[in-house]
Design a protein around this nucleic acid. Structure first.
Lengths: 188, 188
DNA sequence: CATAAATTCTATCAATCTATAGAATCCTGC
DNA sequence: GCAGGATTCTATAGATTGATAGAATTTATG
């Protein structure tokens, strides 16, 4: 379903049904064989984008890996999904608020499921002693999502960007921050 | 100029000139006494948003403060600008790409000026020994901007959010990350 | 008050939009 | 090759859009 590409490029209100039909190689009227309305099409694109996204997170959260590996997998999956030009995720991020309330309930549920699972990963990191006990896991999860989406937007517009490099730097920021560590002797 | 509020809520293409006029308390046709076109109105809103934003950064960068204070001021200024419902900044972030190339040159210049000044602040942090010498200042600046915009979007939608709390946590993330520090003895 | 300038209004045009209806075409299985 | 469903087409309705023109009104200035 390649209406996603048009919505991603021009936004929901900026995309006419003619634009979408042209991308699909059919005429405008033929669209309504597939969709009851343009709004329904947006709903399906958003759902497709978030579903793929959530499924990957489910696999990561359920896997038997240490915290660091899960965080790495999360960031890597999130960023590479933009490189693969998964326009649907961008559409979910940018256009879902234009959907009427009834059409957003499923999206909201999936979105908060994703966030909660990411929070769970941070809880695991705390329990294993890798993360500070005082860490606000809700803040942490939102920060990861926000950071990845921001870099995702940059990646989408610059195909020459080195995703592996950015992934590494994001992980490093999330774990260690930018500050210099003082020279230390370990006590244990 | 309160077209900003309409653009921020409904997006550029989702806002009709009638919507904008209604918010201003005038009739649709009267708009064109002020704007040559709807696009020109968007350009002015974007410019207003980024200009205020850049001016604050200029003051911070030029000020005589240590690195940590400048970083704090940057994040604080960025986040509180969303609390003050500076819709124009949101419009700049979300809608500027719908402007034709010629109208975007000034915006691009201001945007990269902001980013460069923020990079300069990180350079200062490196020179003063607070930040790691290996830090990629371009990455760092983009990360700060992305993180603040992501939290800005959340703040705009939830007026009960504690901005001071978020500012603190963002600074803490940027400087120290989420990981636990091992127990250490300082050698110096 | 009178004149001019600034501002807003009404009315309207031409273009574009979403959506529908029914005809035309394509594909599949017998 | 023919029947029938699936898919696409054309044509069009009805609403909304951005923008313009000129009249009406308000505001400022002498």
């Amino acid at each position: 379903m390649s209406a996603a590409a048009v919505f991603a490029e021009k936004g929901f209100h900026g995309s006419s049904t003619r634009d979408i039909a042209e991308r699909l190689g059919i005429k405008q009227g033929s669209l309504y064989y597939y969709f009851k309305s343009k709004e329904e099409a947006l709903g399906e694109v958003c759902l497709f984008g978030i579903e793929e996204y959530v499924h990957r997170m489910q696999d990561i959260a359920a896997s038997d890996q240490p915290f660091e590996a899960k965080l790495m997998a999360t960031v890597s999956s999130h960023l590479s999904s933009y490189r693969e030009r998964n326009e649907a995720l961008k559409v979910y991020n940018d256009e879902r608020l234009y959907l009427p309330e009834e059409r957003r309930t499923k999206l909201k549920q999936l979105g908060s499921q994703y966030r909660k699972q990411l929070e769970g990963i941070f809880e695991q990191g705390k329990e294993s002693g890798v993360l500070r006990p005082s860490l606000d896991c809700h803040f942490a999860a939102q920060a990861v999502i926000g950071l990845c989406n921001a870099w995702g937007d940059i990646i989408v517009r610059d195909p020459d960007m080195n995703i592996f490099d950015i992934t590494q730097k994001c992980i490093d920021l999330l774990l260690n921050g930018f500050a210099e560590r003082r020279k230390v002797k370990r006590t244990q």
